[in-house]
């Protein structure tokens, strides 16, 4: 997809997943909008279901592979690849794909159960991957209408987008650069901080909320200490876990909150999209007052 391809959209089968259709609508909205302006139409799979939100780590638990295999089957009917935005959907689908590729007997067993013949050929990709490998950072930088000059953005990768490397393989699991490169292409300044790949607590938030809140506060305060004005993530659970502890409570606000945005939202601002395409309403720490500094007057 090069410059001459502009106007002729490349259609990419797209799996939104449960959260992007509900709580994380802003990620879906901004993701589709920025992909479209870059010549990629994210075409939602006509019939999809939840991926199960966890990859089974027990080797004898093939039940939990059924839901993601159904998604992969649905994707296979639509094309050769399927794109996800949610880091957890991406993780579950990609690991399932890898597991079935390495274990054809397991694939047969699941196909027998679902009565759907999944051929095992779908390539699971993340939008970040398409931006890096199909479009390229230089081309993205050329498409930027409103460079985010001076914005100090902390890339927060979390866990499941990167690990385990031998099954996901998106980027270096200990020293990733993909979000750094994206932030730089948008004209902003990526801020390094030591908690960039630390876990936010993930599902612990439904079991031991105090444990995950402690982890989240450490991540946010580390980014703040490094001078970040905004945290950038690709995962709706990271977004929630980092943003929720910063919500306004009966005690008001502390005054040093940092908004936690999806990378697609930063892109929407830099690509000059109107504010409704940012999908930034309803977040606990409103990023719009900060981001409007880089938006044009007519867009607000």
């Amino acid at each position: 997809m090069k410059r001459e391809g502009r106007g002729v959209a490349m259609k990419v089968p797209y799996y939104p997943g449960c959260t992007l259709s509900t709580k994380g609508k802003g990620y879906d909205r901004s993701g589709r909008a920025v992909a479209a302006v870059l010549g990629m139409e994210l075409v939602e799979l006509p019939d999809w279901q939840c991926c199960g939100a966890t990859f089974p780590l027990a080797t004898d638990n093939s039940m939990a592979l059924i839901a993601p295999t159904r998604v992969l089957y649905q994707a296979e009917q639509a094309g050769e690849q399927v794109a996800a935005l949610c880091a957890i959907c991406y993780h579950v689908l990609k690991r399932t794909q890898t597991a079935l590729e390495r274990d054809p007997a397991m694939r047969d067993r699941i196909n027998w159960f679902t009565e759907q013949e999944y051929g095992g050929r779908v390539r699971v990709v993340h939008l970040l991957e398409l931006l890096r490998d199909n479009l390229g950072w230089e081309e993205l930088a050329r498409r930027v209408m409103r460079p985010l000059t001076g914005l100090r953005a902390a890339p927060y990768y979390g866990c499941l987008l990167l690990r385990p490397y031998d099954e996901i393989g998106l980027d270096n699991p200990e020293a990733p650069t993909i979000l750094h490169d994206l932030i730089r292409a948008l004209g902003a300044e990526p801020v390094d901080f030591p908690y960039s790949t630390e876990c936010c607590g993930s599902y612990l938030t439904v079991k031991d909320p105090t444990v995950s809140e402690t982890l989240s506060r450490d991540i946010v305060s580390s980014a703040r200490a490094a001078g970040a004005q905004v945290l950038v993530t690709a995962c709706p659970l990271c977004q929630f876990n980092l943003d929720w502890p910063q919500r306004e409570t009966e005690f008001g606000r502390t005054g040093d909150e940092i908004p936690v945005v999806y990378f697609t939202q930063l892109m929407a601002v830099a690509l000059g999209l109107p504010e409704e395409d940012w999908g930034a309403e309803g977040m606990y720490t409103d990023p719009r007052p900060l981001l409007r500094q880089w938006a044009g007057d007519g867009d607000a």
């Binding site: 959260t19 509900t22 709580k23 939840c50 939100a53 957890i88 938030t205 439904v206 929630f240």
Partner: peptide, 20 residues
């Protein structure tokens, strides 16, 4: 906490229930 339950993203509920 009820306020947390109202706000949790769907994947946290699905994933958490599967895991625990």
């Amino acid at each position: 906490p009820p306020d947390l339950v109202r706000e949790l993203p769907q994947l946290a509920i699905v994933g958490g229930f599967r895991k625990y």
